[in-house]
């Protein structure tokens, strides 16, 4: 029975999604979203077992808050009939994701995500939405177009989505035991070695009379003992290193980026260049509209023959 519990949660989520996708009054939709959030919370709970897996209680709570917020915003984004609200919910998702990344000690990524996504991409989406989104009927300026109100084939989509979710759940639950052993944090310290000036400054701050440089063994200066990392100076002094000395996430990411993926950086730059060119080219095309077509666009219907001048 325990084997099927995650899948039951998936089923519940799928059913609520399906219900939420049908055109229904607001209260119904909110209820469905709430049930969906509860189901996903249940799923996460089953998978993680207990919150003690997280480092501290606060981290566990924050994890739940951020993840459920993300899921709720996602469900609401998918089912909302007004595209502008979808974009706004997406901003909420981005913020929740940033929170999760913060918990993973990837602060650079979190803020980069917020800056780029919420700050740039979403603004562009907003612009285009406001440009293109028009009311269908001038009499009712707050109604949405038909293609926003009624979804296409929710059943098939929910079914495939449910299958996908089951696949992932099964992989995660089944494969958790077969993961390779987790790494140790030694790679972080080795980066600190490479940042010699910063390393030296930090060491001399703590222990001003440390004989720099320290001895290196096996090519590494920092040794690992039972109580953590330490360095040995030339005259035998052993200095234990504090975790505060570690390079920041930004430094780590930068180091990895430039050291291990130099070509990819160049390629990413090229991609952005191409995107810029593409956008410029695409937007350049000017379409000459005749008076008749302009009237049709503005008024939303064909104009009279009288007064048609070219």
């Amino acid at each position: 029975m325990d084997l099927f519990l995650p899948y039951i949660a998936c089923v519940t989520l799928a059913l609520t999604m399906y219900a939420a996708l049908r055109p229904s009054p607001l209260s119904m939709q909110v209820t469905m979203v709430a049930i969906g959030v509860a189901a996903s919370g249940w799923l996460i709970g089953i998978v993680t077992g207990s919150l003690s897996a997280f480092n501290e209680v606060s981290h566990g709570i924050f994890f739940i808050i951020f993840s459920l917020c993300a899921v709720a915003a996602a469900i609401r984004m998918v089912t909302h009939e007004r595209p502008i609200y979808c974009a706004l919910y997406f901003v909420l998702i981005v913020v929740s994701t940033a929170g999760l990344l913060l918990m993973l000690e990837a602060e650079f990524m979190a803020f980069a995500l917020i800056i780029v996504y919420a700050g740039a991409i979403l603004i562009t989406y907003m612009f285009v939405l406001m440009l293109a989104n028009q009311a269908e009927n001038p009499e009712e300026p707050y109604s949405q177009a038909i293609y926003d109100r009624i979804p296409r084939e929710p059943a098939a989509a929910v079914a495939i989505g449910f299958l996908l979710l089951c696949l992932l759940t099964g992989t995660v639950t089944g494969g958790a035991s077969s993961l390779p052993p987790e790494g140790d944090g030694t790679s972080q310290w080795y980066v600190l070695e490479k940042l010699s000036h910063q390393f030296e400054t930090n060491v001399l701050e703590i222990a001003p009379d440390f004989a720099w440089p320290p001895i290196s063994e096996d090519g590494h200066v920092i040794q690992f003992g039972s109580s953590g990392p330490y360095i040995v100076s030339g005259d035998g002094t052993v200095l234990e290193l504090d975790e505060a000395m570690l390079p920041t996430n930004t430094q780590m990411v930068g180091w990895s980026l430039v050291n291990d993926f130099p070509v990819t950086i160049e390629l990413a730059g090229v991609i952005l260049l191409m995107a810029m060119f593409g956008a410029a080219v695409l937007a350049r095309r000017a379409i000459e509209l005749t008076e008749k077509e302009k009237r049709k666009v503005i008024l939303g219907h064909d104009s009279e023959e009288v007064g048609d001048d070219r």
Binding site: R152, E153, A156, A157, I160, L163, L164, C166, L167, G170, T171
Partner: peptide
């Protein structure tokens, strides 16, 4: 001609195959 239905077919097939292989 609807892109989404093409996408459903593709992804659905990919998911089924993956399930089968797993």
């Amino acid at each position: 001609g609807a892109i989404q239905s093409y996408a459903i077919s593709m992804i659905g097939g990919a998911v089924l195959i993956t399930l089968l292989m797993l």
